[in-house]
């Protein structure tokens, strides 16, 4: 399974005086089982790009293939596609609308025409995955905390059992505890349930910890792409386009400058601690 973006261009307000190129010549293949982090400054085209993955946006030229099929060709079922490629928007909790948590989560599977029984089972599975306790199933979504609301909104997408889950800044505005809950939910979906993940994020620390590959967007184009280690090596270039490397990267580079023999490919704090314990021999107590 894969999503393949081919020579994609997207122009806002094409043919008017407000015409503006949103995406330029994007080529990208998302393979089964990947965890892709998409980073880029505000306005770099991240959200516009991911809204092509399930056919919400129509490219000005180029196309998107799902398992090799052109999703924009006549007769291709977008409804089917959207149940396989789940998209969680920014601040998805603003879209909660039903009277109870359970009903809200059922909305998606209802729309793709599953049986009553499947709808109910899927919704309950999704809520369980999202870590929502059973006592909350029948309360109004408006009663929940910020982090809980967001997990319910994500459950609404999970209830369609997507193969691909695309999340647009799912942790923005959450406290550190709520943020970690969402990230470990996503990590579990990737590792245990084999869901392919595309995570749009402004947190370099988060994508460093979880992503297997990073795609860096700048002014509507793919600036660089590679493993987190490869991408964050180019921190100077990242800084020029409004990004940075995780703090750990700068820390290890400074240790190296001090003359310590440490591996500067390391990008997460836990790895950094292990490396220092292994390589830096000072007297310990």
């Amino acid at each position: 399974m894969s999503i393949e973006v081919r020579n994609l261009n997207y122009i806002y307000n094409e043919g008017t005086v407000f015409e503006k190129q949103g995406l330029r010549n994007i080529n990208l293949t998302i393979e089964d089982g990947e965890f892709i982090g998409i980073i880029g400054h505000t306005g770099s085209g991240k959200s516009t790009l991911i809204q092509h993955f399930n056919g919400l946006n129509k490219p000005s030229s180029g196309t998107v293939l799902y398992n090799g099929d052109d999703i924009y060709k006549k007769g291709f079922s977008k409804k089917q596609l959207r149940s396989k490629v789940g998209l969680v928007f920014q601040y998805p909790e603003y879209q909660l609308f039903e009277t109870t948590v359970l009903n809200d989560v059922k909305f998606g599977p209802k729309n793709i025409g599953l049986s009553e029984e499947d709808i109910d089972n899927n919704a309950r599975d999704a809520l369980e995955m999202a870590g929502i306790p059973k006592e909350m199933y029948n309360v109004s979504p408006l009663e929940l905390s910020g982090g809980e609301k967001r997990r319910v909104a994500i459950a609404g997408v999970l209830a369609m059992k997507p193969k691909f889950l695309i999340l647009d800044e799912p942790t923005a505005g959450l406290d550190p505890g709520g943020k970690n809950e969402i990230l470990s939910l996503i990590d579990n979906l990737h590792k245990k349930d084999g869901v392919t993940i595309v995570l749009v994020s402004h947190s370099m620390e988060d994508v460093a910890k979880y992503a297997t590959r990073l795609v860096v967007m700048n002014d509507g184009e793919i600036f660089i792409s590679g493993t987190p280690g490869e991408v964050f090596k180019k921190y100077r270039e990242l800084e020029k386009i409004g990004l940075s490397a995780p703090q750990t990267v700068y820390f290890l580079k400074e240790l190296k400058n001090l003359g310590y023999d440490v591996n500067t490919d390391i990008i997460t704090p836990d790895e950094a601690v292990r490396e220092i314990v292994k390589k830096i021999h000072v007297k310990r107590i």
């Binding site: 505890g177 704090p269 836990d270």
Partner: peptide
């Protein structure tokens, strides 16, 4: 901090882990 749903900055976290490994 964890009890209040918060966390420490990464540098504080690394320093804390290193202290537990015996670094002065």
């Amino acid at each position: 901090l964890k009890k209040y749903n918060l966390e420490a900055p990464q540098a504080v976290y690394i320093a804390d882990r290193l202290r537990k490994e015996g670094f002065v």
